[in-house]
Structure formats: C-alpha cells, structure tokens
C-alpha cells in the first residue's frame, strides 16, 4: 500500500537516504531497523512531508504523495509519531489529544455561535475518545495536567496517543519504546497487535528494542547507509551475518535461542 521508489535525500555532502525502495503491505506491522545514522528517521521525514526528497517517489494506495506538505500528507492517512516528543506544552494532556481530529465543527468562526449544541456534543465525543485513549495508555491520572509536566516516558505515550485519535491508513512510529517502561512497552505491543487485527491498521515502526521488534514485526526491513540492506521475517533477519555485524553486534548471537 505504501510504496517508496528510489527515494534520495542528501544534506550537503552527506547522503542521508540514497535510492531507497521499499513496500509496506496492507495490514502488516513492518519493522524498520538499522544502525544509528542509517537514515531511518530521515526516511520518516521524507514520507510525511517534513523533508522534500531530492529524487524518487512515495505513493500511498497508488496515489502520489511525494513532496506534499505535512498537513496534506496527514490527511491522506499517513500518521506519525516523533522520536523526541513534540507535545503542546501549554495545554493539558487531554486537550493535546482533542486537537488531533481534523475538521472539527468548532474550528470555524461561526459554528460555535450558530450551532453551539452540536459543537459541544462533538467536543464531548472527542473528549470521551481522548479519555479512552489515555485510559488505555495509563495516562488517565494526568489527563488534566499540563503536557509540559509529563515525564519523558509519558510524553512518548502521549505521542502514541495522538495516532490513536484519528483513523489513519498507516501509522509510522519512530522509536515508541525509547524511554518507555518495558512492562508497558509489552502492553503497547499487544495493543498495536490488537489495532492491526481488529481495525486492520498498518504500521511501520522504527525501534531498537529487539525483543519488541522480533516479537511484533513481520516483515522487518533493515536499513544501512541510506538504503535497504535486506527485507525478511524476524528469524531470517536475526541470523543474517550482515545484520549481526552492522547492527545487532556480537552479543546478540549468544542470547539468541
């Protein structure tokens, strides 16, 4: 469904992403791994319009989305989280989530005056949904706190919460696990799996926690130096000597069972 065709991006002399081609199939949880600096986050930025590629194409369901600005990409159904959380600091946690759904009735100038009741009802629905998401992420207790006061890990969870507020076609997660408690991460993996099974959502996720990736993702795409090194199922990837060498490191072989 998401097709990346020979995408390239350079910063000055540095080729961050070069001629990178990959496909994410509908309904999969595709993992994207690779050494730090392999171009994974840059690829995400290219896919979501935060950066413009130098060459190459990105299409979602055969629709060309290359070079669209971020808000237009978002409307085509590509939704993302950030490695470093970008919360709206001055708002409460629940308000952060309530802002996410696009085209809310209350966003026009006249609706709050002309149709106050419908606006309020919609807002209550969105609020309920947001509270539900927070409940799910174990953030219900802090719903009314300023987002700036959340701990680092809680901000990561809020990032994930934003993606659950819409009905995206594909969700791109940039290191959902970094700084998140491992027990909670395990639950997140379960819920990602549930979202995939029950709602048919598609995920593409960058993560360094190998337990998480190997258990959850199939297929796994390995990136190295800006392009795809290999694609395969977890057991294949885990045993590939190139991956072991460049990414997992020697110690992984020993613990592999």
């Amino acid at each position: 469904m998401l097709v990346v065709d020979r995408l390239s991006k350079r910063f000055g002399g540095l080729k961050a992403v070069q001629s990178c081609s990959l496909t994410v199939e509908v309904g999969t949880i595709t993992g994207l791994i690779g050494p730090n600096g392999a171009g994974k986050t840059t690829l995400f930025n290219l896919l979501t319009g935060f950066l413009k590629p130098d060459s190459g194409r990105v299409s979602l369901d055969d629709r060309d989305v290359t070079g669209l600005p971020p808000h237009r990409v978002f409307r085509t159904g590509i939704c993302r989280t950030f490695q470093i959380p970008k919360e709206l600091k001055g708002m409460t946690v629940v308000e952060n989530l309530m802002l996410v759904p696009p085209k809310q009735l209350g966003e026009t100038i006249w609706n709050p005056f002309v149709r106050p009741r419908r606006v309020r009802r919609q807002e209550m629905e969105i609020r309920d949904k947001a509270l539900g998401v927070l409940e799910f992420l174990e953030l219900a207790e802090v719903a009314e706190q300023q987002a700036s006061q959340l701990s680092g890990g809680q901000k990561k969870l809020l990032e994930l919460g934003r993606t659950l507020m819409t009905n995206p076609r594909i969700v791109l997660l940039d290191e959902p696990g970094a700084g998140v408690n491992r027990t909670l991460l395990k639950r997140l993996a379960e819920s990602i799996r549930t979202l995939q099974k029950d709602l048919g959502l598609t995920f593409l996720l960058i993560e360094h926690d190998m337990d998480f990736v190997m258990r959850l993702c199939a297929p796994i795409i390995v990136m190295s130096e800006g392009s795809v090194l290999m694609v395969g199922d977890p057991d294949v990837v885990q045993r590939d000597p190139r991956v072991l060498d460049a990414y997992l490191g020697g110690q992984y072989v020993a613990t592999d069972d």
């Binding site: 690779g34 050494p35 290191e175 360094h208 190998m210 990414y247 997992l248 490191g249 992984y252």
Partner: peptide
Amino acid sequence: LDEPSAALAPNLTAT
C-alpha cells in the same frame, strides 16, 4: 545518566 541507551541500536547499547 538518564536513560543512556534509549534510542540506541543494540550494538551501540552494548558499546
């Protein structure tokens, strides 16, 4: 050190 290994690839975590 606050989360020194967050966001690191496994080989780097080891390093």
